[in-house]
């Protein structure tokens, strides 16, 4: 029974569910605030994402006359949020939380991470707007470019762990975390540096921030898929984006730097790590570089990240 309760808790309260929601929105708030400061603005209050959510809840739902179907159009963001909430329950927090195997392993998480992209594409396309279609087109191109390197990176981590533990491979996130806690973080392991390098390029693309915010580029395609959204549905998209930040950053930590003390200090440590990652890895990047064109981004991913990812797998395979 405790098992089931623990599962429910993991999905609904911590680290998925409520916790992920709040933490994600807080990270967003921090991001906006710091970005504003870096740009010489005052910026919104930290709780602005929460306010936005409430405000959007009071707006009326609008559906384009040309949409492919109201249920699909409105349901899409809901699916995205749900997927990310479940995904959040799959991300381990070193020393604090290890997901139960019955929920799924790294592979499940990896494919759940595709859902927000799918949802965005479907949403853009279902709106019937040409901007949505362009956003769809760009999102798919980007996914095709970055998912390949990501798969190779994940494989490298899984193999390194599996072989390190004397087995074949392991996609269990808890084992990956445990292995690094006893053998040292992969971030500090030269063998894994190519993998880290490839992963570094992946997460801005997945999170849709500059220089890879091409699908939703406001100044080009007016936020693309989101253009026709308003009200609660738009709010759900914002939640989805916030949750995705938690999942992706958390995944990065689990894969390469699950170093933390046990217990409550571990959680604090993790929260700080996430915040630092958000600011350094997201905020600073997005205010300091410009946007790439989609063909540039596509070519870029098939060059460097793919090279690094392939190298990482090769190095792991050679070292064993």
């Amino acid at each position: 029974m405790t098992n089931q309760l623990a599962l429910l808790a993991a999905v609904f309260v911590f680290p998925g569910g409520l916790f992920a929601l709040l933490f994600g929105l807080a990270l967003k708030g921090a991001d906006r605030r710091v970005a504003a400061r870096l740009q010489g603005r005052v910026g919104p209050p930290l709780a602005q994402p929460f306010f936005d959510l409430v405000k959007l809840g009071f707006k009326r739902t609008m559906v384009p006359a040309t949409s492919a179907g109201q249920t699909l159009f409105l349901g899409a963001p809901l699916v995205g949020v749900v997927a990310m909430l479940v995904a959040a329950a799959l991300v381990p927090i070193a020393g604090v939380y290890a997901p139960q195997p019955i929920l799924g392993n790294l592979l499940v998480l990896l494919y759940l991470l595709m859902v927000p992209g799918v949802v965005l594409m479907v949403a853009g396309s279902a709106s019937g707007s040409p901007y949505g279609s362009i956003g769809f087109s760009r999102e798919m191109a980007l996914m095709l470019a970055y998912e390949g390197p990501l798969v190779l990176v994940v494989a490298a981590v899984a193999l390194r762990t599996g072989w390190g533990m004397g087995g074949t491979v392991t996609f269990s996130l808890s084992e990956i975390v445990e292995y690094q806690r006893t053998h040292g973080a992969f971030l500090l392991d030269p063998v894994m540096w190519p993998a880290v390098a490839a992963f570094v390029f992946f997460y801005p693309a997945n999170l849709g921030i500059v220089p890879f915010d091409i699908p939703e580029a406001e100044t080009e395609v007016l936020e693309g898929p989101l253009l026709e959204y308003s009200g609660p549905a738009l709010g759900l998209f914002k939640v989805m984006s916030a949750l995705k930040a938690v999942v992706v950053l958390g995944l990065g930590l689990a894969l390469f730097f699950p170093v933390a003390p046990n217990g409550i200090f571990g959680l604090v440590f993790w929260l700080v790590e996430m915040l630092v990652l958000m600011i350094l890895g997201v905020t600073v990047v997005r205010v300091s570089v410009g946007r790439m064109r989609i063909d540039q981004a596509f070519a870029f991913f098939l060059k460097w990240p793919l090279l690094f990812a392939a190298a990482s797998l090769a190095v792991v395979a050679v070292v064993g």
Partner: peptide
Amino acid sequence: LLPYLRLGHRAGVVRTQIHQ
């Protein structure tokens, strides 16, 4: 989560023309 999504339905769903 569905109730949140349906908040906007209170006054009926508005049909809009897409932005061009």
